[in-house]
Amino acid sequence: MTPILLAAEVTKRFGGLLACNGLSLAVRPGEIHALIGPNGAGKSTAIGLLSGEIAPDSGSIRFGGADVTRLGIAARVRTGLTRSFQITTILPQFTALQNVALVAQVRAGHSFHFWADAHRDAALVDPARAMLERVGLGKRAQVPAEDLAHGEQRQLELAMALMTGARMLLLDEPMAGLGATESQQMTAQLAALKGSLTVLLVEHDMDAVAALADQVSVMVAGRVIATGSFAEMQASQAVRDAYLGAHA
């Protein structure tokens, strides 16, 4: 199967620091792919490069067969590659429903409509409401986003990311800061996406990775050193050495 996301020899240098050193990664459509590695391995930089937030010094990134290396964040979102979590996407003063409806609005084309009341526009509000139901926030639609609980804000972000029409989500530590129950809920919600959507997630919570990931890539010192199933990675001596070496 041809990969939906293909990064080839992507390099990024911040001053003297080589944050990504020839990163290569292939993600197949429909899979949940976890990117793990010791702290400082460059995982967040990798997500930044893939989402378009950071421009690479060299290398190429292809998504859905097209070269997106030079595209910015907004343009990549429009091709179906959306980042969520860690940079929160929610607008604090809008309600949950307004947040998701705004995404529906942006997706629906340009916003040069000056008169009609957008908050009563069924073409925006109905799909937004349905999306909130899907992530389990239906009852909280009218609550301002800043008043939602932490876990609920994550759910809202997920709803917004899905509403962009994403074919692939880049998730940076979706479990970070969540309690045990909230973590399990989020794991179940991500598991429910399997097959319909491709997901690349950076995660430290190995229980979540074990439960969710079809493929795991291990990143050390700015590059991917191994890719395989979670069990294969656990068994790999090279991975263990790298992890231990990086910790020592």
Partner: peptide, 20 residues
Amino acid sequence: SRFGNVLQGIRQSERRMAAI
């Protein structure tokens, strides 16, 4: 309107608007 909606989003966070 949709236009005003977008403007309010930009005020709250331009970066987040790019993210959607």
